[in-house]
């Protein structure tokens, strides 16, 4: 699974225009939901906050897996929409950008790397981070915590870092 953490809200809003942007949020319901940076609840939270702050969020679409092109084929954007806020990992963002080349696509998360999960314990462990996050190798977090509340004691007893 892919681990993503939310970018700061300001990093998102600085790319949006209150006057001209008509926004659809496209979300992914897989890894990013487990990470805690996405999913239906996060999408609602983000949409209502953006609206409260004066942005024109028209609607949202939650896909089962945003990095798979066939699912994106289900999406029908309203003609007035000119901006997509992507609540998906980098792979989902690339998929959206490639399929909507005429639309501004704004990212909301940073890909940390690959994780393993234990659904019984409700924990994820960073197993293969991107180099820029290599210091996070082996860190564990509660499922859905968005990279917060790092666990002190090892929960998933596996050695990470394949040679």
């Amino acid at each position: 699974m892919i681990f993503s953490n939310s970018l700061e809200y300001k990093k998102l809003t600085c790319q949006l225009d209150k006057t001209n942007d008509v926004i659809t949020i496209i979300g992914c319901n897989t890894c990013i939901r487990v990470s805690g940076a996405g999913g239906p609840d996060k999408m609602k939270e983000l949409a209502l906050k953006l609206r409260e702050d004066g942005y024109n969020v028209k609607d949202g679409i939650m896909l089962p897996i945003a990095c798979m092109e066939p699912y994106l084929g289900i999406v029908e954007l309203s003609p007035e929409v000119n901006t997509v806020v992507s609540l998906a990992c980098t792979a989902g963002v690339s998929n959206i950008r490639r399929n909507y080349p005429h639309i501004k696509v704004v990212e909301t998360v940073d890909n940390i790397g690959l994780i393993v999960a234990d659904t019984n314990k409700g924990v994820v462990k960073i197993a293969m981070p991107y180099e820029r996050h290599s210091h996070k190798l082996g860190e564990e977090y509660p499922i859905g915590s968005d990279g917060k509340n790092k666990m002190e004691k090892e929960q998933i007893p596996i050695e990470v870092g394949v040679e």
Partner: peptide, 24 residues
């Protein structure tokens, strides 16, 4: 193991799987 994992990407309609965010 039989694979090398290279990062994340998409499953496309015309090219099958593609790598979009490779590990450094």
């Amino acid at each position: 193991k039989v694979v090398k994992t290279l990062g994340v990407g998409n499953f496309t309609m015309d090219r099958g799987p593609v790598l979009t965010a490779p590990f450094e």
